[in-house]
């Protein structure tokens, strides 16, 4: 460290900070899905990471098809949509087959979705093999931009950040402007009364679960631009995603945003200053400490109840 100039040090810190922003983007995409599902029906979906992997593998399959056809430059945006649809449909089916029989039983859903996650991991292993795969990415997403001397900002990071921003805005818009959003907010406050004023709460559940899983799929597609995909890729992210949701306050989108940013940045910058495990320990301890002071998370609505 002694031989590096302070300018180089700050350039590295900046780049490390940007690596944190990429992590923040993926965490945010994951956490949004998890948070709307948890907020709506109190289900902790342990298989959420595997829905992310479904999105990654969908992107991989499309890239193989696209390279055969010579469509590599244009396939990627479509793969985002495909990942959303495939993961969403899988989520919709899972809700109908399994989840809806387990409402009001939080521990059972925890175990059941964990089982689903193991089953899905094995399916990935059987179909795609234990080795990690990477889709072939279009040229325009590779490389980096240099806003200043010694500073490299990777394009894929910018892309993922932009995508996370767009998706977050889209979800916020749906949550606060659409009929579905209104029904979700009503149901999550009082399920029985929501039914008694005419809301089909079970249908809202199904749509919400599918949407949350679809968002995980989009996260998975975005994830392929940063790292390769293996059968257990999803489970690596699930713990951090839970941390984001709990830390942010399950009912608050602003909280999820702020908490994903804090945790992503903290991890990334601390990893630069100390070892990876110590960075994780420090982040966890801080989050646990803050949660002891504010058990409801960072952000809660101020209202009489």
């Amino acid at each position: 460290m002694s031989e590096t100039t302070s300018a180089e040090f700050f350039a590295t810190l900046l780049m490390q900070g940007f690596a944190g922003i990429s992590l923040f983007s993926v965490l945010l995409l994951m956490a949004l899905g998890l948070a709307i599902i948890f907020g709506q029906m109190g289900v902790i979906n342990m298989a959420h990471g595997e829905f992310m992997a479904i999105g990654s593998y969908t992107t991989y399959i499309l890239s193989v098809l696209a390279s055969e056809q010579g469509w590599l430059d244009i396939y990627f945006p479509f793969s985002l949509i495909a990942a959303f649809i495939v993961a969403g449909v899988a989520g919709y089916l899972l809700e109908i087959v399994l989840i809806r029989h387990l409402y009001q039983r939080p521990l059972d859903t925890l175990l059941a979705t964990w089982g689903v996650s193991l089953i899905l991991q094995q399916i990935f292993r059987s179909v795609f093999g234990a080795r990690e795969v990477s889709p072939e990415l279009p040229e325009w997403i590779m490389g980096s931009v240099q806003p200043g001397e010694g500073i490299d900002i990777p394009v894929n990071g910018l892309f993922v950040l932009g995508l996370a921003g767009l998706v977050t805005a889209g979800v916020a818009l749906m949550m606060f402007r659409s009929r579905w959003g209104l029904q979700v907010r009503a149901t999550s406050q009082n399920r029985l009364i929501a039914g008694a004023v005419g809301i089909d709460t079970q249908q809202v559940d199904r749509i919400t679960f599918a949407l949350g899983c679809g968002l995980a799929g989009v996260a998975g597609a975005a994830f392929t631009t940063i790292a390769s995909t293996g059968p257990t890729s999803g489970s690596l992210y699930i713990v951090d995603t839970f941390l984001v949701v709990v830390f942010g306050g399950a009912a608050s989108m602003v909280g999820t945003l702020a908490s994903a940013f804090t945790i992503g940045q903290a991890q990334s910058i601390l990893e630069f200053l100390m070892t990876g495990s110590m960075a994780k320990v420090l982040t966890l301890v801080t989050v646990v400490g803050l949660l002891m002071m504010r058990p409801e998370g960072l952000f809660t609505a101020k209202v009489r109840r």
């Binding site: 209104l182 009503a186 406050q189 029985l192 004023v197 009912a251 609505a301 009489r304």
Partner: peptide
């Protein structure tokens, strides 16, 4: 419940039980 509402029943519960964090209009 929601089907009974569609058939023409409406319910004002004891203790009001409005949705506290939604606006009046919502």
């Amino acid at each position: 419940s929601f089907r009974r509402v569609r058939h023409g029943l409406a319910y004002v519960p004891q203790g009001r039980l409005i949705f506290p964090t939604l606006t009046v209009e919502e």
